[in-house]
Amino acid sequence: MIKKTSSLLLCFFLFYPLSAFAFTVYEVSGIAIKSGPYYSPSDDKYIVEFDPNIVRKVVYGSYTDATFSTPMTVKVRELGENEYFYGVHYFTCNSYYKAEYFDGSGTLVGTVKFHATELVNPTCNSDTSLGNGGSGGGSGSCAGCDLFNCPGWSQYMGKLDEIKNAIPPTPNWNQVAVIFRDTIVPKLVADLEVMLGTAPSPPAEPPDLPGVDTHGIENKVPSMPDPGLDTSGFTKDRIESEAPVIEFREDDSGGFNIVNPMDTLPPLPNKMPEPGNTDAGDWDAGHPQEPEDAPMPIPKDQDGTPDTGDAPIPSQNNDTPPGPGDNSGNPPIPQDDGMPGSKYYKKHPDDPDGSG
């Protein structure tokens, strides 16, 4: 079982090599064509696979150009008695090829047109693989035909057809564009209009106001009168020649010097201040110290300190406050003279002073 599986895989990879080469294919059509054309670098051949159960006749040849109207060689391979195709067609020249495949009734069931260009050593003995019960038919190109007569070969090829048929076809982009234009875009615009609303209408242009006299201002150009500076004689040379000379004066004050403020700073003490120590020490050397025996200031108009005397002390002179009726410089004391009020007071605001 393992040996049979290995031989089947070997048949598959030898028969179905991957190709990274590029060539031009003009037509592949018909129900009989299974795959190809493709280039096999291991065999240095182009290969077309067709259905051997359908094809009974193959007509192929090389042509001068892509019109396939002028043949250079044409061959016909038709099955005889007890013959059958293996379903493999080799092309071994770098040329333009056209191959046509017919069924038993003579109906065209497959067509291949391509331009072979990658052959390294073209042998130009293109042919199909035939079998007739043991001996190879055709022009001797069936050497090694048993390699392709693998057990269950048609089943494996059928699986490949299933994979190929499962790949969706290329979309018709023209139809997609038409659907997008006629269906998707109008729906999108309508949905946006429902969601966002429409833009307001542009405002109408203001009407012309009839009867407004512009006095032709739209036709006037502003002008700047010439001040006549070019004829005033006010020139640079005249300023330099007629301007009064500024007299130079010497500075008798002696001027002043600008010193570097960093040079006037006092030197820093050697001992740094200590936390908790309230004695400024040498750090207070930069402040002016007032001498302990400094005299008191004396006014300029006095020779010495004025004698201000002793400050008054309450009750020092034993003076008693004035009492009522005392005329010795003390305030008067109101007295009763039998009349309402007092002779020292006005009975009425309009009465003269001192009248009772």
Rank of each mutant, 00 (worst) to 15 (best):
V189R: 02
V189Y: 05
V189Q: 07
A190R: 02
A190L: 04
A190P: 00
A190W: 01
A190D: 08
D191S: 03
D191W: 01
D191N: 05
L192E: 09
E193F: 03
E193S: 09
V194H: 08
V194M: 07
M195R: 05
L196V: 08
L196Q: 06
G197Y: 00
G197A: 05
G197V: 07
T198S: 02
T198H: 02
T198V: 11
T198C: 00
T198R: 01
A199Y: 06
S201F: 01
S201R: 03
P202D: 08
P203Y: 06
A204R: 10
A204V: 09
E205M: 08
E205A: 10
E205L: 07
E205D: 15
P206L: 02
P206R: 07
P206H: 10
P207E: 15
P207I: 14
P207K: 12
P207Q: 14
D208A: 14
L209V: 15
P210D: 06
P210T: 13
G211Q: 08
V212T: 13
V212P: 00
D213G: 05
D213L: 06
T214G: 04
T214E: 05
H215Q: 14
H215F: 08
E218D: 12
N219C: 08
K220V: 12
K220P: 00
K220I: 11
K220L: 06
V221S: 06
S223W: 02
M224E: 15
M224S: 15
P225N: 08
P227N: 03
P227I: 12
P227T: 15
G228M: 07
G228C: 07
G228I: 11
S232Y: 09
S232D: 13
G233V: 09
G233Y: 01
T235M: 07
K236I: 14
D237K: 07
R238W: 12
R238K: 15
S241M: 04
S241C: 03
E242H: 06
E242K: 10
A243V: 15
A243H: 12
A243F: 13
A243N: 14
P244C: 08
V245Y: 05
V245P: 00
I246F: 02
I246G: 01
E247N: 09
F248N: 13
F248E: 14
F248I: 14
R249F: 10
